[in-house]
Each structure stands twice: as structure tokens, then as C-alpha cells.
Amino acid sequence: MTADELAAAATTALGVAVTVEDAYPPLTLDVPADRWVDAARYVRAELGCDFFDWLSAYDALDEGFAVVVHSYALERHHHLALRTRIPREDPRLPTLTEVWPGANWHERETFEMFGIFFDGHPRLVPLLLPDGFVGHPLRKEFILAARVAKPWPGAKEPGESEEGGATGRRRMRPPGVPETWGPPE
């Protein structure tokens, strides 16, 4: 099935507009968040994707979070990725553990890394982060504190011994540290 045929078939089955992106293998089905579980059931039942590979998310900045599920059809030998967008202000999605039980731990990890709540999850607690960890590390606004605490050796200009030697020139910030963060002057 080509990308367009798949998009047409999925749109007919789910009743909402489904687009398929062909940029990278596997084909990525974009569905709206309110049909998330139906789309997953369709992918598993009709398209035969019974092997659950992974579920994760990425931070799409202004467009919210994008949650992606990758699955594989063992009999028909094709991969498929299912993706949806959820708003940043209210990151909630229904759980996929009814469709693929393997999504249990993946949703726990996505919850702790991004702060996305999965409604209906049997035990949504952090999986990998230590107890008492504050924050959601894989969000783009999460700053790696070690990069702020340690002075960047490359911040010095050639011919400079200590920080503060080059005045009047824009200080180079280490990669990954925004302008508003920094050691106290």
C-alpha cells in the first residue's frame, strides 16, 4: 500500500482526516489526539501491526508535544509509525495499554520525561529517574545544570587568562545554555 492509499483507507475507517508522511521510513500516520486509541486499534487489527516497538514523544515547541508509536507487522512485514499532537498547556492522552500491553513502561517513561499524562494507565509513576527528581528532562526548556555550573573552557578568547578579560565583546555562551542562565556575576 502506498502512502496515499493508506491515508485514504485510514480516513475512511476512522472518520477523521488522516495524513501520511513519507519523509522517513517507516510511514507515519498523523491522527488527531481524540481518535488516538481508535487509530491504534485500527493499526493493530486492520493493518496487522501486532508487534509494539516503542512509544515516545518529542517537544515540538509551539506546536506542543508529538507522541509517536512505532509498531511492526510480523506477518505482513511492514513498519508503521502513528503520531499525534497534544497541546503543551494540557498534555493528556488516553493510554494504549489496552491495545498493546507493552506500552505500559513506555508511557511511564514518556510521562516522566515530558510530563504527558496517560489517562487510564494502571500505574503511572516514574520509571527511570531517581526519586525526588524535579522537572521533565526531555522538554526543550530543561537546562542541563552541569553546563551552567562548569565554566566553559572555550569561553575564553585567545590571549585571555581569566573570564572577564575581553570587555566590550560578546561573550560566547556554551552550547545549550540560554542567555538568561549563567553563573552570578
Partner: peptide, 14 residues
């Protein structure tokens, strides 16, 4: 020093 991913090269000069 700038390209080191570990920030482990320390250079002082004048």
C-alpha cells in the same frame, strides 16, 4: 577547547 564535547581542555594564555 571550544569543540571538545567534554570541556576537558583548559587553556590559559596572554
Amino acid at each position: 577547547a571550544r569543540d571538545c564535547p567534554d570541556w576537558c581542555i583548559y587553556i590559559d594564555s596572554h
